[in-house]
Design a protein around this nucleic acid. Structure first.
Length: 466
RNA sequence: GGCGACGUAGCCAAGUGGUAAGGCAGGGGUCUGCAAAACCCUUAUGCGCGGGUUCGAAUCCCGCCGUCGCCUCCA
């Protein structure tokens, strides 16, 4: 049983085979940095982080490139509105997104290239396309000639002729074909621009990813990813450019995540229908967003709501419930409780891998984790000892880690707070011993009001922050 | 108009021919001084609707209804 991945190119699940044995080269389209990122961007980054983590778990060495588009019409417009320098504005949001990656427990991509520092590679590629006859110059602009690419449309399933009929945008008379797209745009006054053989200008949107992918990963890569809104025209055009130039298949697998929706509509920076990552993280911990993403398949659309956030927060608590220590103080006897647990650990591992092997079926993989949680809690209640329990907990922690869940306690308690709570717990123990229930319950209630929850067990009282 | 998805319990969601995972919420119980937590039981004779194929369909085919995405910047 090997790993299978749904390839947008074939619209089928295909067995995963990399070009170079044991190595994965993965390029994922990152955000255009003209505004703060929303949880839809986070979803995409989380999805590909999980893919990367699982590939690494399976023993692949992964080189992961994620780009920042820091030269773009929208950035220029926004910068003008704010009276700022476009490159500096972009820099600000790049830094913010880098922080988000960290907060969301996303492994840092191996490389995070930006358009503004890759101009030479882009110019070189455009030059190559012109020389090979795939692109043509119109004044200071350069366009890709789709008629020169017999395969054009293979990713999105479109045909050049059909697109003409449905074309809603104004046709630029200077293009040979309305579907032709800009590789290089002549500079306008006040815009960032660079020298090129065609005069000063800046890259078109699609060429950057072709050039950066090629520079950092080579002519052929294993996985190219992004949101499914990028299939057309962005990824279609990337394929056209790269393959016209190299004569080789660009990416072996095209992987696209579904869109996150808010209020019944796709999140979009331009329409303002969005929930910024910053805002989400003010209300929830990062694992909550990750659990929301993991709970539905990455290719499906995901409708965000406060209800699912609450459900995910509660689900997280359940996962954490498995990490409570044994009820018995000794090593415990290898009774039926421990034996069942040992079996559960083995089946969980197998089920988890089988689910993930099937096009990263994270909802199913999560199911196996929840099953293990039940087994652990059951074994604890059944008197399993600490060593057996810890082995199972270790398994759970490892597999949750493959999904990027930290499962750490929500917040690290402040030592002074901990000392105070423990003092109150101690006093309350004495009150309980003296059957002073009224006072004991009052302490518990007042602490609960501060989100400090007391749980009286057989072997003393535990507390945690809610 | 063109292309493509999707519609599974109160909610989220897996399942693509063999008789409905998992989570959240709800109900009952065990434990507990009472709680909480944990555990046990419970909540879809049915998977948008109507036909068809099959020994057998949520899963395949046809039609209908509904929701959404892309076709234009978008993760």
């Amino acid at each position: 049983m090997g790993l299978k991945i749904f390839n947008t190119l074939s619209r089928k699940k295909e067995p995963f085979a990399t070009e170079v044995e044991g190595q994965v080269r993965m390029y994922v389209c990152g955000p255009t940095v003209y505004d703060q990122a929303h949880i839809g961007h986070a979803m995409s980054s989380i999805v590909f982080d999980v893919i990367r983590r699982y590939l690494e778990y399976r023993g692949y060495q992964v080189r992961h490139v994620m780009n920042y588009t820091d030269v773009d019409d929208k950035i220029i417009v926004r910068a003008r509105e704010l009276g700022q320098d476009p490159i500096q504005l972009a820099q600000h949001f790049v830094e913010q997104y880098d922080r988000h990656l960290q907060e969301l427990n996303i492994l840092p991509p191996s490389v995070r290239p930006r358009v503004s520092s890759e101009i030479d590679g882009i110019v070189g590629m455009v030059k190559g396309l012109i020389e090979a006859g795939h692109a043509y110059r119109v004044n200071g602009d350069v366009y890709f000639d789709v008629e020169h690419d017999p395969d054009y449309g293979k990713l999105s399933g479109r045909k050049v002729e059909e697109m003409l009929a449905g074309a809603r945008l104004e046709i630029d008379e200077r293009k040979r074909n309305p579907a032709d797209f800009a590789l290089w745009k002549a500079a306008k006054p006040g815009e960032p621009s660079w020298d090129s053989p065609w005069g000063r200008g800046r890259p078109g949107w699609h060429i950057e990813c072709s050039a950066m992918s090629r520079r950092h990963l080579g002519d052929q890569i294993d996985i190219h990813g992004g949101g499914n809104d990028l299939i057309f025209p962005h990824h279609e055009n990337e394929i056209a450019q790269t393959e016209s130039l190299t004569g080789r298949q660009f990416s072996r697998y095209w992987v696209h995540n579904g869109m996150m929706q808010l209020n019944g509509d796709t999140m979009s920076k331009s329409t303002g229908n969005m929930l910024p990552i910053t805002e989400f993280l003010q209300q929830h911990e990062a694992d909550v967003l990750r659990l929301i993403v993991l709970n539905s398949h990455y290719r499906s659309p995901l409708a965000f709501s406060s209800e699912i956030a609450e459900a995910a927060a509660n689900g997280l608590e359940r996962l954490r419930s498995a990490f409570k220590p044994a009820e018995t103080s000794g090593a415990g006897e290898a009774g039926p409780a421990e034996q069942n647990l040992t079996e559960a650990v083995a089946t969980t591992q197998a089920e988890f891998a089988a689910a993930m092997d099937d096009d990263f079926n994270t909802p199913k993989a999560l199911g196996s984790l929840f099953d293990l949680v039940r087994s652990i809690n059951l074994a604890r209640d059944g008197g399993a000892g600490q060593p057996a329990l810890q082995a199972a907990q270790q398994q759970l922690r490892e597999l949750a880690g493959v999904l990027g869940l930290r499962l750490a306690a929500g917040t690290v308690p402040d030592p002074r707070l901990a000392a105070l709570v423990e003092m109150l717990v101690e006093i309350r123990e004495e009150l309980r011993a003296a059957e002073q229930w009224g006072l004991a319950d009052r302490i518990r209630q007042r602490l609960a009001d501060q989100d400090i929850l007391l749980e009286d067990g057989k072997h003393g009282t535990r507390w945690r922050q809610g």
